[in-house]
Design a protein around this nucleic acid. Structure first.
Length: 610
RNA sequence: GCCCCCGUAGCUCAGAGGAUAGAGCAUCGGUUUCCUAAACCGAGGGUCGGAGGUUCGAAUCCUCCCGGGGGCACCA
């Protein structure tokens, strides 16, 4: 049980005794929370104010009664009443010390596994294979990976599924390119590179190349039209095109997996793409028609909009959400149909309690339509969630992908982040050295590893540290800043922790197994650090329940700051006594492990020295 | 025309019923014989887009308005 929950349980009897309505106790318990300011203690109970309304008694008086009912507790100092009836709880240092010792001896750092594990399917990344990845895929991939790590760490079962776009018009482009422009020698030598070249080459032949969603429109464009015909032949089962598709697929996947490896994305459990579901689509449409869940309209087969209506006239369509299209007038199926097939497959094969889709916010309407239809279809027990996120913008605040010159390919973008990260590191290192500060002696390989951790970490952290629902501005300068809420600051804090053990030639084992050592809380910065360390569990739980990884980065930021202040004010190796030295070593070790674990949940590396 | 999201310090963002709205950057001023100064300490800076309403209490919930972005049947 996490600290906040423990405190709530201790407060519960008092609230239950005072509340007139037992059903309201849970609600009142949610008023027990972390104090907003240090002057208000560590945690506060804000239940007296709503209770005073219910009971028709002065709030101050209710607060006094609550305090009387709170047991004299080993965990907290005598509770203080402030203002109109806020109850401030300050935890005893002895309690903090004991809890820290317990966390230090736990490989999970005091984070319990959930009592009721759930089974999740998470659908993220989902790139169009055969097309170079770009920043648009970045958020989905990074967020999905972080959520997977977090939910698994808390004890849930997570099945990750990369719903590849492996059956779309981009293959028509590739097939057309291969038939007309392939360089056989280059293809034999490096198929991935040659396919990427072909894709870009054919695209450049398109008459009007709007940057995104290039496969539509331009019906007067002969090359586009030719590519479309190749796609249609593929879908119709043309042996030559199908053979080419089979031949290309492994190379296309390799292109994507190279990026995943560099980003430290966990391997997917499944990569069931559109092609996998293609054979099921006709049957699903027939079934929905037969059951009256879909109907024909204007030559297409459609399903109701989220509200359950099928607007038909132009006027109705103007006022209402559109219906979803399962089968187009030309007989082709849409991705809505594929997504329905996917839900059925996942329900039958994985029996998840929840399916999460980590997808751009612009697809909100699609998911509302999809989820509503899935429920009508009978899948009404599963939690279907669109984990939406905002657009990645350039520094000019325009969508990154739509800027002039097109979206930079991810590979290049990551390389640039690493290059700049390395440059900044070497610069700062030289400056520190010039000022007479200590810098570690490092080999070229170690510097390269630091650059990689810093550069890739910066990109991921920048993305994860912002509320996913808002758009975010991609800026190398900001994400690679060495101060502020960035990956580098956290990685640096970690390296400083490790440095203490290295410099002191101290083994960390003694601080990780019972009985560990006694913790003393002397300096205010020790107390702040101690309290933050104990809030790891409640933070992770909150992040998981709202699927918001930025709760973790906010926590990390506070923790790393608390450590830096502590580091500044409290000598560890040269502490006044051996006992205090041990106590501080335990704090430092736990801080290091917590920072490292939190970064690991975000998929970000640490380095021992930097 | 309908629907969704956003508007908080000069900039980038937290905060989503609770106390005097917080960080970082930038600006200004300080700290290094001492475990990594990519650090720390301090200062200034706000009609929480606007107006009503609900509430003991609103940046947070409701209504309207202004401003920005996005989506709106045969692309995915």
């Amino acid at each position: 049980m996490n600290l906040l929950e423990r405190i709530r349980e201790w407060v519960r009897p008092a609230l239950a005794a005072v509340a007139s309505d037992p059903a309201r106790v849970e609600d009142l318990l949610s008023s027990v929370r972390v104090a907003g300011k240090p002057e208000h203690g560590d945690y506060q109970i804000n239940a007296a104010l709503p209770l005073s309304k219910q009971l028709g008694r002065p709030s101050r008086q209710v607060a006094e009664e609550l305090v009387r009912l709170l047991p004299a507790h080993p965990a907290w100092e005598p509770p203080q009443i402030a203002g109109p009836g806020f109850i401030n709880l300050r935890l005893r240092n002895e309690f903090l010390a004991a809890a820290l010792r317990e966390a230090a001896c736990d490989s999970r750092l005091g984070v319990p596994r959930v009592e009721q594990p759930r089974r999740y399917v998470i659908d993220y990344s989902s790139p169009n294979v055969a097309k170079p990845l770009h920043v648009g895929h970045l958020r989905s991939t990074i967020l999905g990976d972080a959520l997977t790590r977090l939910l698994r760490f808390l004890g849930h079962t997570v099945i990750t599924d990369n719903h590849l776009g492996d059956w779309g018009t981009q293959f028509g482009i590739l097939i057309y390119g291969y038939k007309h422009f392939v360089d056989p020698q280059a293809y034999t030598a490096d198929p991935v590179r040659e396919l990427a070249r072909l894709y870009v080459h054919v695209r450049s032949l398109f008459r009007s190349s709007n940057d995104e969603d290039d496969e539509e429109g331009g019906s007067d464009d002969p090359i586009r039209e030719a590519c479309r015909r190749e796609t249609a032949k593929l879908h119709a089962g043309d042996p030559e095109n199908l053979a080419l598709w089979r031949q290309f697929m492994p190379h296309c996947l390799e292109m994507i997996e190279r990026i995943y490896r560099r980003l430290d994305i966990l391997p997917f459990d499944y990569q069931l793409g559109e092609s996998f579901y293609h054979p099921m689509l006709a049957g699903i449409v027939e079934e929905m028609l037969a059951r009256g869940l879909a109907q024909e309209s204007a030559g297409a087969v459609v399903i109701p909009n989220p509200a359950g209506r099928i607007p038909q006239t132009a006027e109705e369509l103007q006022r209402d959400d559109p219906p979803g299209i399962l089968r187009k007038r030309d007989g082709a199926f849409t991705y809505l149909t594929t997504d329905l097939a996917t839900i059925r497959y996942r329900m039958e094969h994985f029996q998840p309690a929840a399916i999460l889709y980590v997808v751009d916010a612009r697809q909100a309407l699609h998911f509302r339509t999809l989820f509503a239809q899935a429920r009508r279809w009978g899948y009404d027990q599963v939690e279907l969630q669109h984990i939406s996120f905002g657009t990645v913008l350039g520094e000019d605040r325009r969508p990154f992908a739509a800027r002039k010159g097109g979206a930079p390919e991810l590979e290049e973008l990551l390389a640039e982040a690493v290059r700049q990260g390395r440059h900044k590191y070497e610069q700062s290192r030289a400056e520190r050295q010039a000022q007479g500060h200590k810098v570690p002696e490092l080999s070229e390989a170690e510097i390269a590893a630091i650059a990689e951790a810093v550069g890739i970490g910066a990109v991921k952290y920048a993305d994860l540290s912002q509320n996913r629902t808002s758009d975010y501005v991609f800026s190398y300068d900001r994400m690679l800043a060495t101060d502020g809420n960035t990956a580098t600051y956290m990685q640096y804090a970690y390296a400083r922790c490790r440095s203490i053990f290295r410099e002191g030639n101290v083994s960390d084992a003694r601080f990780r197994q019972p009985p560990a050592v006694a913790v003393q809380i002397v300096h205010p910065s020790e107390r702040t650090l101690a309290l933050h360390l104990l809030r790891f569990a409640e933070t992770l739980q909150a992040a998981a329940s709202e699927y918001l990884p930025h709760y973790i980065t906010n926590y990390l930021w506070d923790l790393a700051k608390a450590f830096s202040v502590f580091f500044e004010h409290c000598p560890v190796l040269k502490a006044e006594s051996a006992d205090l030295r041990d106590s501080r070593l335990l704090l430092v070790d736990l801080a290091a492990r917590t920072i490292r674990q939190a970064l690991e949940l975000l998929g970000i590396r640490t380095v021992e020295r930097m």
